[in-house]
């Protein structure tokens, strides 16, 4: 049995301890907002927060996050109104949308760490998130817009989790 807190809920999982968090989320918990893109830590589609930090769930064994706090896109904000999500809607960032959970989770972790990131800081932090549709320009614009907006509930949560 592995205990883990996912989106503020205590969860008990009876799975192979080596199972990556990604598949535990998707197959066992039906939290399919977190996506598979490469399975190798190269694309960021599977990004979630571990104690407020962005991690790639496809290469993180479930045992490595035992007794810790995971936040997925589904738990970012109760009403899906995290300031990053609001900015994403405002800039109509998604095309196919498949990479966007991961982009949003990375962006939210970036802003929790760096309130007003420069272009370079955005590039450095977001480099691990591929968008094959090529929505990068809007991702950058939305991050900047979110940076200038009011802190959201999640940020407080992220800070608490540190």
């Amino acid at each position: 049995m592995i205990n883990v807190t996912i989106n503020k809920k205590a969860i008990e999982l009876d799975v192979d301890p080596q199972m990556p968090l990604l598949y535990a989320l998707r197959d066992e918990l039906q939290l399919t907002g977190t996506k598979f893109g490469c399975g190798a830590g190269q694309c960021g589609a599977c990004t979630v927060h571990l104690n407020g930090q962005a991690i790639r769930s496809c290469i993180t064994p479930i045992s490595a996050v035992a007794n810790q706090k995971i936040t997925t896109i589904e738990g970012l904000d109760e009403h899906n109104n995290d300031k990053v999500q609001i900015a994403w809607r405002e800039y109509k960032v998604p095309q196919c949308g498949y990479c966007q959970s991961g982009q949003i989770m990375s962006a939210s972790a970036l802003l929790a760490k760096t309130a007003n990131p420069s272009d370079k800081q955005i590039d450095d932090f977001m480099q691990g998130n591929i968008c094959r549709c090529g929505t990068y320009k809007r991702i950058k614009a939305a991050i900047k817009s979110a940076a200038n907006s009011e802190p959201s509930a999640n940020e407080t949560l992220v800070k608490e989790n540190r």
């Binding site: 197959d27 996506k35 960032v93």
Partner: peptide, 26 residues
């Protein structure tokens, strides 16, 4: 307004990879 925007941003849009059925094999 874009049709699937809200669902995508909420992580609630359904792609082929996301289909889950009872008794399903992968």
């Amino acid at each position: 307004s874009l049709t699937d925007l809200n669902e995508i941003v909420a992580g609630q849009a359904t792609y082929a990879q996301d289909i889950q059925l009872p008794n399903m094999l992968i």
